[in-house]
Amino acid sequence: MDKTPRDHGGNLDAAMHRFGGDRAQWIDLSTGINPVPYPMPQLSRHAVAELPTTSDMAALREAAAACYRTRAHVTPLAGAQAAIQAVPHLAVPGLARVLSPTYNEHAAALRARGWTVEDVPEIDALAGAECAIVVNPNNPDGARHDPARLAALAAHVGLLVVDESFADPETDLSLAPHLHSGPENILILRSFGKFYGLAGLRLGFALSSGGIARTLADMAGPWPVSGPAIEVALRALTDTAWQAETTARLTRDVARLDTLGLRAGWSLVGGTPLFRTYATPDAAAAQEHLARHQIWSRIFPYSPHWIRLGLAGTAAEWSRLETAL
């Protein structure tokens, strides 16, 4: 079993332990979560006091399918992470290849279930794997891959997993609208919490063929997501005005963040409308400097130079970040 520590953003407890302060004093920019979340509605009694019904789940699947413009089968799960944990169980363990560097939970989940995992730097190197993983757009460098190229890759692997957790603001990147007419060995993962800023609801979706969907549903059980998550998502996934306004704001805000980063002497590695990764002379020193201002960031064990920042949410947070940089 793989015992390699899984480092993550969002580990604000570690920052507070090392640098002091309480949660209210810190700005957590270590994740790629929208800092201006979808407004929470008043929840109904049904959502919080009763088990989700079959019709509740059907409505959620329909809303997600419409939002992601897909005719694929939709399986709601407790976050995209739940789908990542399920992937190793979809086939007999064999050779998996992960387009790297990327989100480390994909490789870790596979290794924990006995898969042999190879990190590969080019998309063509995924061919021949019994399971191939691509994050599109990628976390943390923002690399983007043409959906048609990914669909073609499926013919050369056993199972192709495309993690689209950060694709909401860039809909043209999504393979989801084409999944119904493509190979049946593709699994697309979508996160609800990142774009809508409600990571605590723990909601995500797996888009796939019917066979994969039935297997995932059997593994997830009869109530894979909560009533509050369903009720909020039914509003958010159909709120096209909010989605458009949020995409425009995120685009403006990452341009603002780039201005601050470049002014600080950093160079842009890449990113998405929800985060940016920069190259610095010493990422650990840069992280510590920001932490002294009680701003938490994300660095990576495989690079001494990369530092990733999410977006500030308020005028006061932006001012503090500008001062610190």
Rank of each mutant, 00 (worst) to 15 (best):
D2H: 11
T4F: 14
P5K: 07
A14R: 15
Q25E: 07
G32E: 06
Q42Y: 03
Q42T: 14
R45Y: 06
R45P: 03
A47D: 07
E50D: 12
S55N: 14
A59P: 03
R61G: 10
E62P: 01
T70F: 06
T70M: 02
A72S: 13
V74D: 05
L77A: 14
A78E: 12
A86P: 12
V87D: 04
L90T: 07
A91K: 09
A96D: 01
L99K: 04
A107M: 04
A107V: 03
A109N: 13
D119F: 00
D119P: 02
L126S: 00
A129S: 04
E130V: 01
I133M: 01
V134D: 02
N139G: 00
N139T: 12
A148S: 13
A151I: 10
A152F: 02
H156G: 00
G158V: 02
L159I: 09
L159T: 03
E164V: 05
F166H: 14
D172P: 02
L175E: 05
H180W: 06
I186A: 01
F192R: 05
F195D: 03
Y196T: 09
L203Y: 06
L203Q: 07
A206R: 02
L207I: 07
L207A: 03
A213Q: 01
L216K: 02
A220N: 06
P224M: 03
G227H: 04
G227E: 02
P228S: 09
A233V: 07
E245P: 03
E245C: 11
R252I: 08
D253R: 11
A255T: 11
R256V: 01
L257C: 05
D258F: 02
G265H: 06
G271A: 14
A279E: 09
A284M: 09
A285L: 05
H289P: 03
H289S: 13
L290R: 11
W296E: 13
S297Q: 06
R298K: 09
P301A: 13
P301T: 09
Y302C: 08
P304N: 10
R308W: 02
G310W: 06
L311Y: 07
G313W: 09
T314C: 09
T314W: 06
A315R: 15
A316Y: 04
A316H: 10
L321V: 08
L321A: 12
T323Y: 05
